[in-house]
Design a protein around this nucleic acid. Structure first.
Lengths: 251, 251
DNA sequence: CTGACAACTGGCAGTCGCTGCCATAATCTT
DNA sequence: AAGATTATGGCAGCGACTGCCAGTTGTCAG
């Protein structure tokens, strides 16, 4: 993977582990494997696990923010969270997953905005508008209180942002679920996943553009995001069939 | 020093190295640093480097194909190519780059088909059609001779295919260049990069779908690719604004 | 041809992500 | 409280990747 790579038997086991953690992420604080059905959390064990998980994420983000993602080792994160490195890797299959999971909680806010958009909007339109709504929320409220707190830390750390964008494909499924929910289609419909993939691809492009422009502030990032998103229909539709040389080079 | 870069610490240096190698890839066999300008290849040194590079790629692909990507170490590749591991990493910043570069040569064929498409087609349309042309070429000619040979090896190894798709974002720029060439726009136009990103995102989705279906043959992969690609305009355009529940849950 | 200079290479030691294994301790069950 | 589960820590180890230094090889002037 980007920062490192797998040890023993290669990529296959990694992928498996990653998916497992993906599912585990959302059942993090509940869901006994016993017959104690539903929401009742059966005990102290689960609570402790949830606490450890949260501690890992918090200290992880903090350290990433302080010394940079690449300059923070998993051992340091584990130690700062009061567990062993071995335990760290029982909670997160890879180091990136700490960032990804934090980013996931940010995505949830986006998803809420997305689901709140008027029903006459196309899924993709709703996504674009939700992005703008989301950003405003981020800029207004999140800067003040420091509760869930992932958003600001990520927003303030270009390196974290980059990590989150690099692996954005792994965030796509969660958004696809929300899209499927909104449109009412079933899990066999490939379209939600596709819109989600395109959305994130556009964001990744925007992020890259933003970095190449010298990362001119967070507003600049939003502008890049929105520009790319707005370009998508133009570029896919029949608008852009300029055979050659229309709006001059460097246009 | 074209292939390597002096890493300092952490992920940032990694990224830098990767981009450096990306540029180096295409100037692999030429370009002295002296004032001997142009195409003249000034010597034995460059030739040797090119030969080593090719050897690394060939043995790398062969070993990946034989024992799997994850079960092949960089040390084995280096040894089989007759160089040290240290030298391997002077040619390729990461192990994946071997696959990526091989895949790049496959992409070149796609790009040729793309550039050969009639001018009245939208860039995205041309891309879709080129994909189909490309695949036919792959299935017909490449299976017979074993010259450049990357295509078949990759096509026959799901693990390599997966690696290539996982990091497909790093292939996007080359394709974007071709798109810009065809449309005649300059490097400041963000649209080629965006189409390229969307194209690869759709492919990645198709690949994922294909894997989840149990990887039903290469024709199945092409079908998944094409299906996703064809869905893109439908999903982005105004066709799909089903507020809720139209074509029944479960697809 | 030769010697200075630059680029290329190998080897070593070390860091870090990540994993399997096993003994121990904590929690849950009855 | 005994026994069955499950979480944890520590250790040893693999493998990707890097910096450093010394030795080799191609290059180019004289």
């Amino acid at each position: 993977m980007s920062t490192t790579s797998p040890g023993t038997v290669g990529a296959a086991s990694r992928e498996a582990a990653r998916e497992a953690s993906g599912e585990a992420a959302r059942e993090a604080a509940g869901e006994a494997s016993r017959e104690t059905a539903g929401d009742c959390r059966p005990g102290l064990r689960e609570a402790k696990k949830a606490r450890t998980r949260r501690a890992l994420i918090e200290t992880g983000l903090r350290l990433f923010h302080e010394r940079g993602y690449g300059n923070t080792t998993t051992e340091e994160i584990a130690a700062s969270a009061g567990v062993s490195q071995r335990t760290f890797f029982r909670y997160f299959p890879t180091k990136e997953d700490v960032v990804l999971e934090a980013m996931g909680s940010v995505d949830e806010v986006l998803i809420e905005h997305f689901l709140a958009r008027p029903a006459d909007e196309t899924p993709f339109e709703a996504l674009c508008n939700a992005m703008r709504d989301h950003w405003e929320t981020l800029g207004r409220t999140a800067m003040h209180h420091f509760k869930g707190g992932a958003a600001e830390i990520i927003a303030e750390s270009p390196e974290l942002m980059r990590t989150g964008m690099t692996y954005c494909r792994r965030r796509q499924t969660r958004l696809a679920e929300a899209i499927a929910l909104r449109t009412g289609t079933g899990p066999a419909d490939p379209r939600p996943e596709l819109v989600s993939a395109i959305f994130f691809a556009a964001l990744a492009n925007g992020h890259q553009e933003w970095e190449q422009a010298g990362a001119p502030g967070l507003d600049g990032l939003l502008r890049s995001f929105m520009r790319q998103l707005e370009l998508v229909p133009e570029v896919i539709g029949s608008d852009w069939n300029t055979p050659a040389a229309d709006r001059g080079a460097a246009g």
